[in-house]
């Protein structure tokens, strides 16, 4: 089956009309367990998330700092399989048919079942986009091709140190949105994003990249506001969201209500 929707396109059209940016929280599927995971996704949506970015736990997450590493470890300790993660997405998709859902994961989880099976299974579960943290542009073509076949958007990363050549290539190949890195390093709320100069975002516009969402080190509403006034189409917040899960493991109700509150405050900051 192929995903024929353009949920990101619809979302950006709708937000532009309302003069808002997008707020996209990230969580790890299966963290802390499968049942709670679905409740967490619902809480994020209820809090006002415009889209969701969802991880599949991997044993060796080289682009992640301690917070998201711990989320993977919690999920894997319950023997979560990628197929369990896709099932959670499928259940969520039935409740929220229009919300864009992205996967963010590592290449070996895609390679093992094979690209064709992985992308088809993801499309069938209702996934809109796939971002593979350890597939740079130079290795991306066959992933982009499989994405095109299955109606999935392959999300590309624009790092702060990208050359013009890289940005131009992202411009040609990006779909859905562009993941704009707020800084070097690994994921984590400990080191704040440096909001990129208008110059970099202007360059992204010049190369016609898909709308840039700023991620890495985004944990406060002021950063969301700043990112959007700098020209980003929105912001992604991972470690700060996962921190709320980690610090409230023993009280799931409190966790869910804090997640709703966090998303709502961050979403509020996207309104221009």
């Amino acid at each position: 089956m192929s995903n024929k929707n353009d949920r990101y396109g619809d979302m950006f059209t709708r937000l532009t009309a309302k003069n808002e940016g997008a707020f996209v929280p990230f969580v790890m599927l299966g963290d802390p367990d499968i049942a709670t995971s679905l409740e967490i996704l619902k809480a994020l949506a209820e809090g006002g998330a415009d889209a969701l970015e969802l991880g599949i736990p991997f044993s060796d997450p080289i682009a992640d700092g301690p917070t998201i590493q711990q989320a993977s470890i919690r999920a894997l300790s319950h023997h979560i399989h990628p197929r369990d993660c896709l099932k959670v997405i499928q259940q969520f998709r039935e409740i929220y048919p229009d919300m864009p859902i992205g996967l963010l994961l590592y290449s070996n989880l895609v390679m093992k079942p094979g690209l064709e099976k992985f992308y088809n299974d993801a499309a069938n579960a209702g996934v809109d986009s796939i971002l593979i943290a350890d597939v740079p542009l130079r290795e991306a073509d066959r992933f982009i091709e499989m994405a095109a076949q299955t109606g999935i958007k392959q999300i590309l990363i624009a790092p702060p140190n990208a050359s013009d050549e890289t940005l131009a290539e992202i411009g040609q190949k990006s779909q859905g949105y562009t993941y704009l890195l707020g800084r070097a390093g690994v994921t984590g709320a400990e080191t704040a994003a440096t909001i990129p100069a208008h110059e970099l975002i202007a360059k992204l516009t010049q190369y016609k990249v898909a709308p840039p969402l700023l991620g890495f080190g985004i944990s406060k509403p002021e950063q969301v506001k700043e990112a959007i006034s700098a020209g980003a189409a929105g912001a992604i917040s991972g470690s700060a969201t996962v921190n709320i899960i980690e610090t409230n493991l023993s009280q799931p109700e409190v966790m869910l209500s804090k997640l709703r509150e966090f998303v709502s405050v961050m979403k509020q900051a996207t309104k221009k």
Partner: peptide, 8 residues
């Protein structure tokens, strides 16, 4: 080169 774009 299966690494984050950042390291390229």
């Amino acid at each position: 080169m299966y690494v984050p774009e950042l390291l390229i």
